[in-house]
């Protein structure tokens, strides 16, 4: 008992001291937390499709530019080169993504030639205007042609020249002025790389059909929910509890062997979802127990279930009712 009080005190101390320093001071401008998620698929300089959400776990630096850009774009790319060098081994966990504002002239081939001058690791994205417009608008990128010569291609493009930094879960977190010192960007990239970021998703969620509890019999009717919880992040997370409006009580259960008998028991301290791993909730294994059903669960219907994770917060999923 004494021991646990001590641990509690230490935990409290750690919690408090981390409170003071836990808001890391970013050098860039922080984006509001409720900014909508961004995803897109464009074509890279090797003619391969590039989807932003495909490689989670890496920090992504984005700039919009064009190869005929006489000043800010090559300047930014040379600055990226410095950032890449300053990051050293950490650079392998950062994607440098250069998106064209000039799809008319910037073919993948042109992007490849141009980016090769700076670094073999920079990714250059092109696409049709229809593919690119939603990306420009997601980042609030302005672009306008300015004619410099009489030929049809005789223009340059005035465009937003900010850098955008996305964290390892693909969320847009920071933006920088184009002329921000490389050290500032490196500083913030390092902060994002060190953030613990579980990446939880839940698949294949289902439960058996069941009838509602009879009047007054609160514990009478139960159903179990099964699913696969996947963590693509580089830090472990923990499923703490679950909630559903279909049942009076929702519990997390695990099956343990007591002697030679299987026994179901309630999990009180949650279930760990390991980094880059998954936990299967299945019959005779872990499952979510709905106790005291308020209504029937008919085959073919779906009902929402809220899962509370220690780090990832609440996640609302839908369970399908079907025969096993």
């Amino acid at each position: 008992m004494k021991h646990s009080v001590k641990i509690f005190a230490i935990a409290l101390l750690v919690a408090f001291s981390s409170c003071n320093t836990s808001t890391p001071s970013f050098k860039g401008t922080e984006m509001p937390a409720d900014i909508p998620g961004i995803d897109f698929t464009l074509t890279d300089q090797n003619l391969q499709p590039f989807t932003l959400s495909e490689r989670r776990g890496e920090v992504t630096l984005i700039f919009f530019g064009f190869t005929y850009c006489p000043d800010v774009c090559p300047l930014t790319l040379s600055n990226w080169k410095r950032i890449e060098e300053a990051l050293g081994a950490d650079a392998a966990r950062v994607r440098f993504v250069y998106i064209t504002v000039d799809p008319e002239r910037d073919s993948p081939n042109k992007m490849r030639e141009h980016l090769a001058i700076f670094s073999p690791n920079f990714i250059g994205l092109t696409g049709t205007l229809e593919e690119l417009l939603p990306v420009y608008s997601a980042f609030g990128v302005y672009r306008e042609k300015e004619q410099v010569s009489e030929s049809a291609a005789g223009y340059i493009i005035n465009h937003t020249a900010r850098l955008f930094l996305l964290d390892r879960s693909g969320r847009w977190r920071l933006s920088f002025a184009q002329e921000s010192p490389a050290e500032d960007v490196v500083h913030d990239i390092r902060l994002l790389l060190n953030e613990k970021s579980p990446q939880i998703s839940v698949e294949n969620i289902w439960s058996w059909p069941a009838h509602a509890a009879a009047n007054g019999d609160k514990m009478g009717s139960t159903a179990a929910v099964f699913m696969t919880v996947i963590n693509r992040g580089s830090a472990a997370d923990r499923l703490l509890s679950a909630y559903s409006e279909t049942a009076e009580t929702v519990e997390i259960h695990e099956t343990v062997m007591v002697g030679d008998r299987m026994k179901m028991q309630r999990v009180t301290d949650g279930i760990e979802i390991p980094a880059r791993g998954q936990i299967e909730f299945k019959p005779r294994g872990h499952h979510i127990m709905l106790i005291g059903l308020k209504r029937d669960l008919q085959p073919g219907e779906r009902f929402p279930l809220v899962l509370e994770f220690e780090k990832s917060g609440n996640l609302t999923v839908e369970s399908e009712v079907r025969e096993p």
Partner: peptide
């Protein structure tokens, strides 16, 4: 006019190769 718009970034406004882009170029 065109030189200032398109070339000066690298070659410098006076054409001496000392444009502000030039510092970082290979």
């Amino acid at each position: 006019k065109l030189f200032i718009q398109l070339c000066a970034g690298c070659h410098g406004p006076r054409g001496d190769g000392k444009g502000h882009v030039a510092e970082g170029l290979a």
